[in-house]
Every structure is written in structure tokens, then in C-alpha cells.
Amino acid sequence: MKILVTELTDSTFDKFVDDNSIAVVDCWAPWCGPCVRMTPVIEELSNELSGSAGVAKLNVDKNPAISVRFGIRAIPTLLMFKDGVLVETLVGLRSKEDIMEYIKTM
């Protein structure tokens, strides 16, 4: 069954990161071609990691506070947290296999 990817906002971001031992947040915008191409990758990750990691999306256009807090200057950017601590920031379009490799090391 396909699971919809959680859409975060500036106000729900912190709770999501706190609630998931491993949290992966895809910072994106709808006009960004590479972000659109990343969408199916994030959906697959969300399905495959269901129960073991939290995968979510954050629209940087509607939620600028998180972009400012993490100094985001390019999208797509993947923020990866372990027990609430930012451990990896991946910039640019990535394959599912590439992202999985990073998650395995967390």
C-alpha cells in the first residue's frame, strides 16, 4: 500500500524530528525541476522505511523559517537527523540507492 509522504510546515517540523529516531526531510519547491524529479524517490523511501525512519517533505517557499535556520541555499536539500541531531545534509538530486547508503550509516 502506498503511503503518502508527510508534508511538514515551519510549526510541525520540530515535533516530526523529535518523534522519529531517524528523520529525513526533503526541502523542496514545486517550480524546481530536480525537486519534482526527486518526488518519486522520496515516496519510495517513505514506503520502504515505514516504521524504521520518518520521511517527510517541506515546501521551502511556504516555510522560510526552516530554510533560514539550516542555511539552505539550494534545493532539493535533504536534511537527515539522528535522535534530533542533524547528521547529514545532501544537496541536489539523489537516487534512492544513494540516500539509502547514507541512512544505513546512521
Binding site: 524546481c32 539552505i72 541555499r73 539550494a74 545534509t89 544537496v91
Partner: peptide, 17 residues
């Protein structure tokens, strides 16, 4: 500096500048 000022997509990242 990728993601820290270097970008390959002006259309994507213009808003940050």
C-alpha cells in the same frame, strides 16, 4: 560550496538570493 552559495539551477534557488 555546493549548497553554500554554488548552485546549478537559478530557477530553483533564485529565492534564496
Amino acid at each position: 560550496f555546493l549548497g553554500k552559495g554554488v548552485s546549478y539551477c537559478a530557477e530553483c534557488d533564485c529565492n534564496f538570493y
